[in-house]
Design a protein around this nucleic acid. Sequence first.
DNA 1: CCCACTTTGTGCCCGCTTTCACAAGAGCGT
DNA 2: ACGCTCTTGTGAAAGCGGGCACAAAGTGGG
Lengths: 230, 230
Amino acid sequence: MTRRTPRPRERGIPEATVARLPVYLRALQALDDQGTPTVSSEDLASIAGVNSAKLRKDLSHLGSYGTRGVGYDVEYLIYQISRELGLTQDWSVAIIGIGNLGRALANYGGFGSRGFRIAALLDADSSIVGDKVAGLSVRHIDALEDVVEGEDVSIGVIATPAAAAQSVCDRLIGCGVTSVLNFAPVVLNVPPSVDVRKVDLSIELQILPSTNNESPTGTAGRSGSGSPGA
Amino acid sequence: MTRRTPRPRERGIPEATVARLPVYLRALQALDDQGTPTVSSEDLASIAGVNSAKLRKDLSHLGSYGTRGVGYDVEYLIYQISRELGLTQDWSVAIIGIGNLGRALANYGGFGSRGFRIAALLDADSSIVGDKVAGLSVRHIDALEDVVEGEDVSIGVIATPAAAAQSVCDRLIGCGVTSVLNFAPVVLNVPPSVDVRKVDLSIELQILPSTNNESPTGTAGRSGSGSPGA
DNA sequence: CCCACTTTGTGCCCGCTTTCACAAGAGCGT
DNA sequence: ACGCTCTTGTGAAAGCGGGCACAAAGTGGG
Ligand SMILES: NC(=O)c1ccc[n+]([C@@H]2O[C@H](COP(=O)([O-])OP(=O)(O)OC[C@H]3O[C@@H](n4cnc5c(N)ncnc54)[C@H](O)[C@@H]3O)[C@@H](O)[C@H]2O)c1
Ligand SMILES: NC(=O)c1ccc[n+]([C@@H]2O[C@H](COP(=O)([O-])OP(=O)(O)OC[C@H]3O[C@@H](n4cnc5c(N)ncnc54)[C@H](O)[C@@H]3O)[C@@H](O)[C@H]2O)c1
């Protein structure tokens, strides 16, 4: 107890913590759905697959929202984490490249339910433009600037072939998008003000055998899931 | 009784390094394709989007394969990294859950070219079973054990709904699969001998806005999956 | 043979994370 | 009020990982 202000000039919550908040959030929502009113750090940590001390330290960055001897109020914690993650407002997302992966993403219902609205689908292939995917009409990539402005898009999802990714990214940034989720297997070059996250499925596969193959007999493997995030 | 395992783990390449090796590998293959015989750590680091000192340190874990004053031999380095990652042999992969995501994965050509052979597609929905996807016939989940044994599957990719993921995972482990790539938004419970990696697209999205909202300092974009590592 | 130049491999330091361990707080039964 | 039990919040320590900076090693020209 050294702080008195509920929301001090916090320089920011550690990145590692932020990366785990969504995991806690999902666990909490599951608990909420089944009517659990409160949960201890031990139980929540177990569901989320992390150490309970880590969970408590993570949550302590948000403030003291727990009650000693009792635990955390599930609904209240959901609200606090959502607020911290900026999920209390909706974000508009544009998906660029409506191929195998782009379609899967567009058809996935799990985004909308979390405050992410898929606002537009864009592709360069004129034989795809105009198709209806997940209730949206695919628009031509030339309209990118118009779409971003018109739909107030702040997140771009790149699912184009690798060769097109950088130029698409540049155009997104050019019209004000500050967050990019990239599925193409290339390193995108962006100014520091833009946040890029990369999801590379091939790399995940390549890491898999090596981590496990290394030692002949029972090594200390990893039980939880690893998303180093960085 | 306070001290448990003093960390028996030794003899391995740092996990953070392993996670970057595939990135270097891809950069090297691009160089090889265009006929470049050698490359300096500076240049390779630039392509891979990392610090050159970090790259050198990463490579030093594999051995001293560089030549001072010259750089690294591209082909030789490709071989060494591939060997370290266990990519010199082929791995059989089974995809379970042939929905939006499972289909995208099955249709993706980038896996086969890297030593991963998609050996089987499995689903519980009998209206899907028998369909041809990416040249493979979808088989019923009941045949999982037979398929794993018959095709010598060592990597399972779970693309089922969250509710089915744990049971599918248990069955995979039960018939000898030691590596699992999980796309379902749940934390899988597995014995330490099994390596699970999670790719959670929703989480990536949720992290995106918050990381960028913060202060302008040090928010250089760039990240692995989650990864953070994870 | 020597010197100037290039590039690797690594010692060292620093900051971020994780984990432990425990005091302080909160509820409950008596 | 008191003591017991449960659980949080957090110092402190340990462990990684990143990056600077430099000596060592290799190349090429004269
Ligand atoms: N499908 C997967 O499971 C998978 C796995 C790992 C990585 N990836 C990566 O994701 C990306 C997409 O994969 P995919 O399987 O969907 O490929 P895909 O070829 O099926 O789809 C790519 C789409 O992008 C469109 N496109 C091409 N250039 C464009 C441009 N300049 N602007 C807008 N759209 C453009 C194409 O018309 C096509 O519809 C690729 O970079 C791939 O390497 C995919
Ligand atoms: N599609 C995406 O972009 C996306 C994004 C993030 C996360 N995910 C996650 O990936 C998973 C799959 O997503 P999807 O969009 O492909 O869902 P989907 O509903 O389209 O496909 C799921 C498939 O799994 C099959 N299935 C169900 N139970 C099964 C069982 N016990 N054994 C074998 N197969 C079974 C279903 O028949 C269906 O074909 C989900 O967990 C989802 O949350 C998907």
